[in-house]
Design a protein around this nucleic acid. Structure first.
Lengths: 332, 332
DNA sequence: AGAGCGTGGGAAATCGTTCTCCGAAGGGCC
DNA sequence: GGCCCTTCGGAGAACGATTTCCCACGCTCT
């Protein structure tokens, strides 16, 4: 029941630890007969390599730290799932930290993971500016990939959806449907997604109406804000409400229903992200689907390429932007 | 930039590694003057202990593995968040594995975590029967806590909500509201939650109507099944639909609306779990709230008590059942 | 004064791998 | 036959912390 070590296998198979290690790790050719004996002894004793000892020696734990703002944000679970699968497929285990949307906590958790000798970090930064320093520090020590949200240019490798392209899809769709009086309900926060989606709306909305780019209300990424925003803009009778994410859109939908507005006849409501309950809203929410699986796969791929870099700062940081897809459902 | 080790601090402070270790770990009293020198040198050099080396020597990684069926199940993110916080507060890091609702994958992930020398495991078993063997094996090696779902008696420590009490709250509420023709829409699967909630309904529904305990439809824990179940039972005009979880309830709500049924006037719909979008449904879902924070805290506490057990099997396994709360909203 | 004890500190073993040297044996080539 | 090159295997040094001995010193008690 006690742990079986290399030494035990060596003793049982009558050769040295070095040889056993070589056979089991396959790092150097070993005589066929010896190899057979060793392997037989290993399975007979039920040998399982000790990852801690291996990590100490190899100076690599096979572990990746994932720090995210809030796992309860409904967009993240699917992303975490795909990322976990992708990293597991690459033989790496995932350490998880939820930093409660607080940049200071985020910095602390990143530091703790570095102390734990993670081989790399995947970060969904809390804030574009406030997270930057901690992220940059981390990137100096291990490979870092920023996921979903950015952190300023050149700080680390980054994988995210092309928010501008997503917003363009929305505006094209609204244009094709003849909508001409859109409002944008966004978030004032300083996450890169909030800023990019808003900027893309402002850049593209003029196609519908020269006045449209100015019709913007900013709050936060929440259902409550979606409700409140409707109260503010409904008096001006928009024919479309473009929301910076699905939470806002669901809130807007709720309030519009209470106000007796017809969706989508009177006003279209469009979300962003395609969170699980977007399709459950009534009417089902038209939204921009993020390619979650591809985002995760791409993040894992970038890490894989950087792995082995003992000294980071090799080459410039890379940015991957994936194209989203418009999911036209009932709300507009 | 290279890693600063104990040896470096020893050299810089003019004493031995042993002394430095003692000062920094506080394992044995050390002369005041020496201690000051050592501490000064440590901070000056920016010494950070290497957790891997420490883990090898101490035979404890300070790491807990969390294996769950599907992080995308909307009930889990909040639980994961609370658990992560509780374990972090206890100084332990969380390794996460999502096993895709598959018992074989679950067994593999558990084994991998054991290979990685986790100090303990928190498991949300996929299936009451099919997960048992892997769980029992794991419990023989490290402390294990089962969370939310059980795995048969005596296999490991277990923390879950009192499903029977929750269902009793629901039935009491319906009785008080004068509902007399309830149906139960549950899950046929072999998770402990599915079985317990169903059993509790069957045991308690007779108070409303002697026929009620027999009015049960079983499918799975999904929105789609909720919709389908309504099609089956609506012809018999129930005045309440008790659902085994919120997903089913949301599906039921949707279909009832399509059929033109008035909720809650004609029929009440009750969920279970209080997932994030339960309050977002229309009408807002009346449901049983699980004390997620307490569940997580209790799991962490049990692990804390078992930690230090080099040989598990000390004492019998303990079961903690926490009392849920009925959240009366608009749906019934 | 000598035995006994408590205190502060160092040397070195240890945890379980990996990996670098080395040495021995065997084979081909001139 | 001597030389070199390849192949196989072992001994032992890392990796970086913890911990067990053990020693030296100074004090107290008899």
């Amino acid at each position: 029941m006690a742990e079986v070590t290399l030494k035990d296998v060596a003793r049982a198979s009558g050769c040295s630890v070095a040889t056993v290690s070589r056979v089991l790790a396959g790092t150097r050719p070993v005589g066929a007969e010896t190899a057979r004996t060793v392997r037989e002894a290993a399975t007979r004793l039920g040998y399982r390599p000790n990852h801690v000892a291996r990590a100490l020696r190899r100076r690599a734990t096979g572990t990746v730290g994932l720090v995210l703002p809030q796992i309860t944000n409904p967009f993240f679970p699917a992303l975490v799932r795909e990322l976990e699968h992708a990293l597991h497929a690459a033989g790496r285990a995932v350490l998880l930290a939820d930093c409660d949307d607080d940049p200071a906590t985020e910095a602390a958790r990143i530091a703790e993971f570095l102390d734990r000798q993670v081989d790399a970090l995947v970060l969904i930064p809390v804030d574009e500016r406030l997270s930057r320093e901690a992220v940059a520090d981390a990137a100096r020590r291990v490979p870092v990939v920023l996921l979903d949200r950015g952190c300023g240019p050149g700080v680390a490798d980054s994988v995210a959806v092309d928010n501008a392209a997503g917003m363009a899809l929305v505006l094209d769709h609204l244009a094709a449907a003849g909508r001409r009086r859109p409002w944008f309900v966004g978030a004032a926060g300083t996450t890169s997604t909030a800023a990019e989606r808003r900027a893309a709306y402002e850049a593209g909305a003029a196609v519908l109406d020269p006045q449209a780019p100015g019709r913007v209300e900013l709050g936060d990424f929440s259902v409550a804000w979606g409700r409140e925003a409707v109260d503010r803009i409904w008096p001006s009778r928009p024919d479309a409400i473009v929301c910076a994410n699905d939470l806002i859109a669901v809130g807007a939908l709720q309030r519009l229903r209470q106000l007796g507005a017809e969706v989508p006849a009177e006003v279209a409501v469009i979300g962003f992200d395609d969170v699980p309950f977007a399709g459950l809203a009534d009417p089902a929410l038209t939204t921009v689907r993020q390619p979650v699986g591809e985002l995760a796969a791409e993040a894992a791929r970038l890490l894989g390429e950087r792995s082995g870099d003992r000294t980071p700062d090799v080459g410039p940081s890379r940015t991957v932007r994936l194209t989203p897809e418009l999911l036209v459902r009932a709300s507009g």
